[in-house]
């Protein structure tokens, strides 16, 4: 085979390789288009104190994200709930140390603590407030206590859920207030 022919074959291979390369690049870009055009948005949802209801040994409030502007703007493109956190204040007005837990459920009418414990999902455990103290649940503290994130995430995905804060002696010896829920949604741009 002469040199000219070898060069022609070499050029042909190079040309075909380049087309293959561009084909791969195009394929990768097509496959990845679903996540390359994504973003995250944060909803800071303040629960009105008037919407926190004391009941038999628990406080409850319902979070309805569907009325939030960010949720409305992205509701058709939400891929996932990337993050959720709760901040609140818990004042212990009694003589004993309070220990508390927070549960979440899609059911907003659980009647008593037994129903909450059996039907709802615990997300925060080990909350303690000394007598006469007020606990500020910060983001840092929240993530130290958080559990069952995946269940919480699936509940939040529906846009509406109810949280139950259970403490012994509530509601007489405590105040539960300044509740704020921070939700990060992930979705298409």
């Amino acid at each position: 085979m002469n040199r000219k022919k070898k060069k022609e074959i070499g050029n042909l291979i190079k040309k075909k390789s380049l087309w293959g390369l561009w084909g791969c690049i195009l394929l990768i870009l097509l496959v990845s288009s679903c996540f390359l055009f994504s973003g995250t948005w944060v909803i800071i949802y303040e629960v009105e104190d008037a919407n926190i209801h004391p009941s038999q040994s628990f406080y409850k409030f319902t979070v309805d994200l569907t009325e939030e502007d960010i949720w409305k703007d992205h509701k058709d493109d939400i891929d996932d709930i990337a993050d959720i956190s709760f901040t609140f204040k818990l004042a212990n007005t009694g003589d004993d140390t309070l220990t508390g837990r927070v549960y979440v459920s899609s059911d907003s009418v659980l009647a008593d603590t037994a129903a909450v414990k059996s039907s709802a999902t615990i997300i925060l455990d080990g909350i303690t407030v000394a007598s006469g103290d007020t606990l500020q649940m910060t983001l840092a503290h929240y993530y130290d206590l958080l559990q069952n994130f995946d269940t919480l995430k699936n509940l939040v995905k529906s846009g509406k859920f109810t949280a139950y804060a259970i403490v012994p002696n509530a509601p007489n010896d405590m105040e539960f207030f300044d509740v704020i829920v921070v939700v990060t949604i992930s979705g298409g741009l």
Partner: peptide, 14 residues
């Protein structure tokens, strides 16, 4: 470099 990462539940971080 633009670095896009898919997320488990869908969507991604760029």
């Amino acid at each position: 470099r633009l670095h896009g990462i898919s997320l488990e539940g869908g969507g991604g971080r760029n």
